[in-house]
């Protein structure tokens, strides 16, 4: 008699449990989908959680307009394959309407504008739970995040006053106008995500695999050459073989020199890597507590 699960199956079971709790405890949840591997994983687990029913909530993509083209192609195919409904909140539209103002100058990014658009979409759709793919191993402020993370009527996170979470008991009670952020894959590490996606044969965006691309160095990070990032005179573009370890907005997603062209090669590369995946994210490098500050304001 050997009733034991391996660590990936145990993580899967935990995440499915969380997703079903969301389905049961909330009236109108939404799954935030960025096109990155973590939100791909969460939506895949959501499909498993409610099988053979359809995923009982829509996917919401906050589109900065500054995407890698591959992301959008993948997104549309993926959403169709899991039989979910897709909603899109547009940052460009928010800029045009004057809800937010575009950043100017060096390292300008629409990443920070996403927060206002996200909060507006949540309010518009009357969503009471926003499910996301954040993991505790990603960033130090996220290490203190709960599975069920309460947000006040301004969408703010109060890290010093979080509800304790014990056993399998999740308290999703809230007042009118408040909502929850839900993080079903809190306990997964980057390596767990890759190992699981490999074991389950989940198709992934081509950006994660080594490809030739025009790139340039800025502050020690390799960025993709794009019309959305004005280059300074001393920054020169060259073609290299690279891949993404995270996928976000073009303006803040670093790429890495890599020859890993299969998921197995990616796993080998991560296992021996000495840099965290967010090491290439310029949005985290603005200050020591950049992530915590953004999270308090309602960022994902």
């Amino acid at each position: 008699m050997n009733y034991r699960l391996n660590h990936l199956k145990e993580l899967e079971s935990e995440s499915i449990f969380i997703l079903r709790e969301v389905g049961a405890q909330f009236e109108n949840p939404v799954l935030l989908f960025s096109g990155g591997k973590d939100s791909i994983l969460v939506s895949y687990l959501a499909k498993k959680a409610f099988y053979p029913s359809r995923v009982p909530f829509p996917l919401l993509h906050i589109d900065t307009g500054h995407n890698f083209t591959e992301t959008i192609e993948y997104r549309d195919k993926w959403v169709e394959s899991i039989g979910a409904r897709l909603m899109v909140g547009s940052v460009q539209d928010a800029i045009d309407r004057g809800l937010v103002t575009e950043e100017k100058g060096y390292n300008a990014s629409r990443n920070f504008l996403q927060t206002a658009v996200l909060l507006e979409e949540l309010e518009k759709g009357k969503y009471d739970a926003a499910i996301g793919g954040a993991r505790r191993d990603e960033e130090k402020a996220r290490a203190k995040e709960r599975f069920f993370s309460h947000r006040d009527e301004f969408g703010q996170w109060d890290p010093k006053n979080q509800r304790p979470e014990l056993w399998n008991l999740f308290n999703g009670r809230k007042h009118l106008g408040e909502h929850f952020r839900i993080f079903p894959i809190s306990n997964w590490t980057e390596l767990d995500v890759w190992q699981y996606l490999a074991a389950e044969n989940v198709p992934l965006p081509s950006l994660y695999f080594a490809h030739r691309r025009k790139v340039f160095y800025r502050d020690g990070t390799l960025l993709a050459d794009s019309e959305y990032i004005p280059k300074r005179p001393d920054e020169s573009v060259k073609e290299m073989t690279v891949r993404c370890r995270t996928i976000g907005d073009v303006t803040c997603t670093g790429v890495w020199e890599s020859n890993a062209s299969t998921i197995e090669e990616i796993i080998a590369e991560i296992s021996s890597s000495r840099q965290t995946e967010r090491g290439g994210r310029t949005d985290d490098k603005r200050s020591e507590t950049a992530m915590e500050d953004r999270k308090k304001d309602g960022y994902f």
Binding site: E139, K140, A141, A143, K144, P159, N187, T289, E292
Partner: peptide, 16 residues
């Protein structure tokens, strides 16, 4: 990980 923890040199919350 939290700003208040770093400022005060104490751990306030469970860290995973």
């Amino acid at each position: 990980g939290l700003k208040a923890e770093r400022e005060q040199g104490i751990t306030i919350d469970v860290a995973y």
